[in-house]
Nucleic acid binder design. Structure first.
Lengths: 227, 227
DNA sequence: ACCTGAACACCGTTCAAGT
DNA sequence: ACCTGAACACCGTTCAAGT
């Protein structure tokens, strides 16, 4: 759509022979353009031809500068992880600070849903949120959790957040029927379950609140192992 | 690979004019063959041409009997969910029975990793595990959790299990580098983190044990709202 | 060193046509 | 009613060739 060929805000690499046989594109331009493409149009829009078109080059050029699509995806995620700043951690008690640090991964994921989705389908979410993960480990350590206990607590907390993120980032295809859990409960009859319970099941949950509550419960559990 | 054209154990639909212009295929054959294809070769192997080939027909025929690929996927998952029997729930206390019921979703997912993976990428995991979900709600109800509290407890528990399943089902491409969290921790230096902690982070976790522990902690939390 | 053109082996989907 | 053949608009990737 946008005829904007130049690759944005990278400081160096000015207009060296633009328009000649050399496009003047470097690896950084490819990765950043790919990242923007994902962020604005979603993971499916990241095709070699579309990306090449955006840069004003041929798909083959991408292979020379970066590599195959998988490599471009990895580079995009690594770049995005550096763009996501680690926010200041607040809280008076150790538990509060841990929950706060944990919810930072939730927030930064929701702030970039499409890149997060890409990372998720590629199995590279760990790479994307490594900085937040480190910050979280520091808080666990400060609370007296170290070694294997710290690792188990970390994995437990992050797995739970990841599970909620899957639910939160699911953008339903506008036509498709009954995919979410509460939609399915709306259309069934179940024996042995209270009717008010069944109706509650048919309502969507407040995922953010529920995620925080769940994480808090886990933190409370893991802190019993501290010191 | 296998030259087995006939579509297995569906009772009706015998050999009506096999080999003529009518292939004698019906909707059930398509869905079951698709399901087996996913189970043996994974979600990526489910292409219209490959599935048609397996059935000895043309891709277009699939559109007549079932519909587009998305429809076939939905039918496969719905069929698989009926194939997965709900196992008996054990446990002396209410908490034990809830954890046991919850872990049934973990086990049945791991028993069919490829179909689960397909359901996961399609956002249809809820459809796949609806029977186990209902069984779990019955246990929550029996423990004195009903209405909104039961719903929140259910979503919390299932999200956590889903998060762990994502980790457990991730089959790493044989070449790809450092994708998992512990692999990344092996290759970095971090200030402010204990060295023994860092080494612990570089070790993989026992996901099943950790999942059960986490679910148990959540159950303990939610049961405080019971009655 | 950097980039193009053409080609290969795939996809999902549609549509007219056959029996 | 059931199925085929041909075609369209896409994919990722490779490879020889150009400047």
């Amino acid at each position: 759509m946008s005829p904007d060929i130049s690759a944005g805000d990278s400081s160096a690499a000015a207009d060296t022979d633009r328009g000649t046989r050399h496009a003047g594109i470097d690896r950084d331009d490819v990765v950043e353009t790919a990242r923007r493409l994902v962020e604005t149009e979603g993971p499916d829009a990241l095709t070699m031809r579309k990306l090449a078109n955006e840069l004003g080059v041929t798909p083959t050029t991408l292979y020379w500068h970066v590599g195959k699509r998988e490599d471009i995806v990895a580079a995009v995620i690594e770049r995005q992880s550096r763009l996501m700043a680690v926010r200041e951690i607040r809280g008076d008690t150790a538990a509060e600070r841990i929950v706060n640090a944990a919810m930072h991964t939730w927030e930064s994921a929701l702030a970039h849903p499409r890149v997060t989705g890409l990372a998720h389908t590629t199995g590279a979410s760990a790479m994307l949120q490594l900085p937040q993960e480190i910050a979280l480990v520091r808080e666990l350590d400060a609370a007296g959790l170290s070694g294997d206990d710290a690792r188990d607590a970390l994995r437990s907390i992050l797995a739970t957040i990841a599970g909620f993120l899957v639910l939160a980032l699911r953008r339903p295809a506008p036509d498709a029927p009954a995919r979410t859990s509460h939609e399915m409960w709306a259309g069934i009859e179940v024996a042995g379950v209270d009717e008010t319970t069944r109706r509650a099941m048919a309502e969507p949950a407040d995922l953010e609140t529920l995620c925080r509550t769940s994480v808090a419960a886990l933190v409370q559990h893991w802190l019993t192992l501290a010191r």
